Simulated assay, not measured.
Amino acid sequence: METCPYCATSIQKDNQYYCSFCLMYIHNVQRDGKREIIEYREHTSELDLDKSTPELMTLPTIELFHLLRLSRKIRKQKYDQLYKSRLESENVQIATDSYQYYTKKMYIIENILNKRLGYIPDRIDNVFLKSYLEKVMISKEKKQDMKVY
């Protein structure tokens, strides 16, 4: 039986799936009250920062943490290059454009996280990521099916 991933209500398809309890269209239909499993990649790369904002918005939170950490690191490097190029009067516009690009990407990721979490993490280090993953793993253990009696 096809069910809503949020409330486990049985849903039927009329052109689209609609949950009459949640009062919304469902795109990630589940079966028999199962909970949705969120898949994520362990590693992100600089190429992921080239994704559009709508694409970034679909990424799991842990991937966004990794990308925010990476974007902050690259932004710092670009700032250092910008500072150096200003001193040497070389390629200032290229350094400025690159710095602005990574600053905007950092802001996008921070704002997506702020919307999801209600705050922007100040520091994303290995301790923070480990703590977050432990919380995710604990919640993943709560995989029992949703049953309404």
Score class of each variant (00 low, 15 high):
residue 23 L to M: 14
residue 43 H to N: 15
residue 138 I to D: 07
residue 8 A to T: 05
residue 61 T to H: 03
residue 42 E to I: 07
residue 67 L to H: 01
residue 2 E to F: 13
residue 115 K to C: 09
residue 53 T to C: 10
residue 72 R to Q: 07
residue 5 P to I: 04
residue 145 D to K: 13
residue 148 V to D: 11
residue 109 I to P: 00
residue 117 L to S: 05
residue 1 M to D: 10
residue 84 K to L: 15
residue 129 L to G: 01
residue 75 R to Q: 10
residue 92 V to C: 05
residue 116 R to S: 08
residue 63 E to H: 03
residue 23 L to R: 14
residue 91 N to S: 10
residue 13 K to F: 13
residue 15 N to E: 15
residue 54 P to Y: 01
residue 39 E to C: 10
residue 109 I to L: 01
residue 9 T to I: 12
residue 137 M to R: 11
residue 60 P to A: 04
residue 103 T to V: 05
residue 141 E to Y: 10
residue 37 I to G: 05
residue 40 Y to D: 04
residue 9 T to V: 11
residue 119 Y to S: 10
residue 34 K to L: 11
residue 111 N to H: 02
residue 35 R to M: 06
residue 139 S to E: 09
residue 74 I to F: 06
residue 101 Y to A: 02
residue 82 L to I: 02
residue 3 T to E: 03
residue 83 Y to P: 04
residue 63 E to C: 03
residue 70 L to N: 03
residue 99 Y to P: 01
residue 37 I to E: 09
residue 57 M to H: 05
residue 105 K to S: 02
residue 109 I to K: 00
residue 108 I to P: 00
residue 124 I to L: 01
residue 25 Y to W: 11
residue 45 S to W: 04
residue 92 V to I: 14
residue 66 H to S: 13
residue 32 D to V: 07
residue 29 V to C: 04
residue 66 H to G: 09
residue 6 Y to L: 11
residue 139 S to R: 10
residue 27 H to D: 14
residue 43 H to F: 15
residue 65 F to V: 00
residue 46 E to D: 11
residue 104 K to A: 09
residue 14 D to R: 15
residue 31 R to M: 14
residue 134 E to M: 06
residue 136 V to N: 00
residue 65 F to M: 02
residue 123 R to D: 08
residue 102 Y to C: 01
residue 100 Q to K: 12
residue 95 A to D: 04
residue 59 L to C: 05
residue 75 R to T: 06
residue 4 C to S: 09
residue 137 M to G: 04
residue 73 K to Y: 15
residue 53 T to A: 12
residue 27 H to P: 07
residue 80 D to T: 08
residue 24 M to S: 14
residue 130 K to A: 07
residue 91 N to R: 09
residue 10 S to F: 15
residue 107 Y to M: 15
residue 144 Q to N: 11
residue 62 I to E: 06
residue 36 E to L: 12
residue 96 T to N: 10
residue 15 N to Y: 13
residue 32 D to T: 09
residue 66 H to E: 13
residue 60 P to D: 04
residue 66 H to A: 12
residue 24 M to E: 15
residue 18 Y to G: 05
residue 128 F to M: 00
residue 94 I to W: 10
residue 9 T to L: 12
residue 29 V to L: 05
residue 49 L to Y: 02
residue 135 K to P: 02
residue 136 V to Y: 02
residue 67 L to Y: 01
residue 83 Y to L: 12
residue 91 N to L: 08
residue 11 I to R: 03
residue 97 D to P: 06
residue 122 D to M: 06
residue 149 Y to V: 13
residue 29 V to K: 06
residue 80 D to G: 07
residue 44 T to V: 13
residue 123 R to F: 09
residue 35 R to P: 04
residue 129 L to I: 06
residue 16 Q to T: 11
residue 53 T to Q: 12
residue 52 S to M: 04
residue 4 C to I: 08
residue 14 D to K: 15
residue 110 E to C: 02
residue 11 I to Y: 05
residue 63 E to G: 03
residue 36 E to C: 09
residue 16 Q to V: 13
residue 65 F to R: 00
residue 28 N to S: 12
residue 14 D to Q: 15
residue 79 Y to I: 03
residue 136 V to F: 01
residue 21 F to N: 15
residue 79 Y to T: 07
residue 33 G to P: 01
residue 139 S to M: 06
residue 61 T to S: 05
residue 107 Y to H: 15
residue 19 C to T: 07
residue 57 M to A: 12
residue 6 Y to T: 11
